[in-house]
Design a protein around this nucleic acid. Sequence first.
DNA 1: CCCTATGTTCCCAA
DNA 2: CTTGGGAACATAGG
Length: 267
Amino acid sequence: MPELPEVETLRRQLEKILPGSEVLGIEVFDKSRIGELENICNCRVEEICREGKFLKLKLSGGREIVVHLRMTGHLYWLEKGDIPPAKHARLLISFLQGKICLIDPRRFATVEIRTQDKCQLKILDAYRDSITGKDLKAAAKSRKIPVKNFLLDQKEVAGLGNIYVCEILFRAGIDPWKKSCDLTTMEWNRIIKEFRPVLKRAIACRGTSVSDWKDLLGEKGSYQEHLQVYGREGQPCFRCKNPVQRKPIGGRSTFYCPVCQGVSQKK
DNA sequence: CCCTATGTTCCCAA
DNA sequence: CTTGGGAACATAGG
């Protein structure tokens, strides 16, 4: 479910509550998927970080809780005394003032306790890092996969998922099927130019609630009101009025305007 | 029964 | 060794 703006929304909300708080306990309900977690009581939360779609609670003593929400995970804040939802609650992290509850119907989310990695390889963050067209042009040299799949590859640029990649490619006027190695530096520049405005607006909207995304406090985001193509199959393109189309790439729905993005038929 | 779903990883083949 | 494609993971909803 969550892409970069949704994870960043959670990070900002947790940042208002948690720093300085002591972890009182972690309770795993779904041990078969999440596994046992090391006891980290007595640690305090020092910082909440996001790296791509990973959320990290950095703890005193050098460890961190690393959460990845995958498809359907979300975090929900429980005030002291609140009861976790009956359905799909997979884990609780308790603090004096309340608890973080991981809700995850499809059970793909992961949670780990790790030692903080000082000298990790830096992944390029789609929002925080400034990336140039030349960088991507170089990285895509010899890559024959569609540009859409390249942008979804978290090792190239971290944070984008299906919704925001569709939006960015539409705004940049790029054919999602175009081979990555065939894009010019100018085309990569057009794509990069859309990263920050799209993600910044989506963060300001607290994410996109097209199905069931809710933030830490159970509120829907509002970026769905700003989507240009995602979910608009059959509706007129906002730019040229021709119908938006949907076709799979690598098994994932891809929404696009064949006219504005120059997509040939038969695809 | 069919298809779809905001993500990632693994396996296999070229 | 690298690259790309598809299945797999598990569950709900239309």
